[in-house]
Amino acid sequence: MKNKKFFSAEHKKYLRKTRLNRLLISLGRWSVLLFIIGLWELSAQLALIDPYITSSPSRVAKTIIAWAKDGSLWLHSWTTLYETLIAFAISIGLGSLLAILLYLFTPVRKIFEPYLVVLNSLPKIALGPLLIVWVGAGTKAIVLMGILICIIITTMSMLQSFVAIPQEKILLLKTLGANRFQVLFKLILPHAIPDFISVLKINVGMAWVGTIMGEYLVSQAGLGYLINYGGLVFNLDTVMSGIVVLCILASLMYFSVATLEHYIHKKRNL
C-alpha cells in the first residue's frame, strides 16, 4: 500500500464501493441473526408462541448460564467435543492412508471399489446396535460411530482426487526417472491438498453427526445426551440450549478449518 497516493480518483471510488459492499453484507448477516432472535423472543413474550414448546432466547440464555455456573456446560461440551475431535482425527488420518494405499495398489483398489460404494450408501446408524454389543455402551461406541460416518467418504473423496490427476504430469515425473513413491510425494499428495481441505470441511459436519447420533444411542454425558434427555422429559429449554451450544462449537471447528485453508492457500499462493 506504499503507493496509495497515486491511486486515481476512479480507483478510490471503486475501493470505497467494495468496502461499502462488504460492510453492507456483514451488516445484513448480523441483522438476520438479530431479527430471528428478536422475533423469537418477542413472540414468546407476547404469548404468540408457547415458550414451553418453543423455548425462547432469554430462557436459553438463562439455561446456559445456569449450566456454566454448575459446571455441566463444560462437562457436556467437552465430552462431545472430545469425541468429535477424536473421530474426526482418526477418520481423516486413517481414511487418507487407506486412500493412498488403494491408489498405490491398483488391483486392490479395483477389488475393494464395489465394497466402498456399498458401505458408502449404507446408513451407518443402522450399525449402532452392533457397535454397542461389540465395544460396549460407552465412549468407544460413540467415537466408532463418528469414524464410521466419516471414514468412507474421506477415503472415497481422496481416492477420487488422486485418480483425477492429469496423466501427463505423472508421465513427466516418469521421464525424469521418478519411482512411484516420488510420484506420490512430489505430485499426488501436494496436488490433492485443496481436495483434502474440502474433505476436512465436509467431515467437520459429518463428525458432529456421528457423535451426536452415537450419544443418542448410548451416553451418560455430552450435548447429544442433553438434547436427547431434554426431549424425553419434555424440557425444550434444555434441547434448545444444547442445540445452541452445539451450533457454536461446530462453527468454531469449521472456522478453524477455514483458517487453516486460508493459511495454506496463502502459503501456496493460490
Partner: peptide, 10 residues
C-alpha cells in the same frame, strides 16, 4: 517436453 508445460502450481 510435453504439449502443456505441466508446471506444478504449488
Amino acid at each position: 517436453m510435453f504439449q502443456r508445460d505441466n508446471l506444478f502450481d504449488w
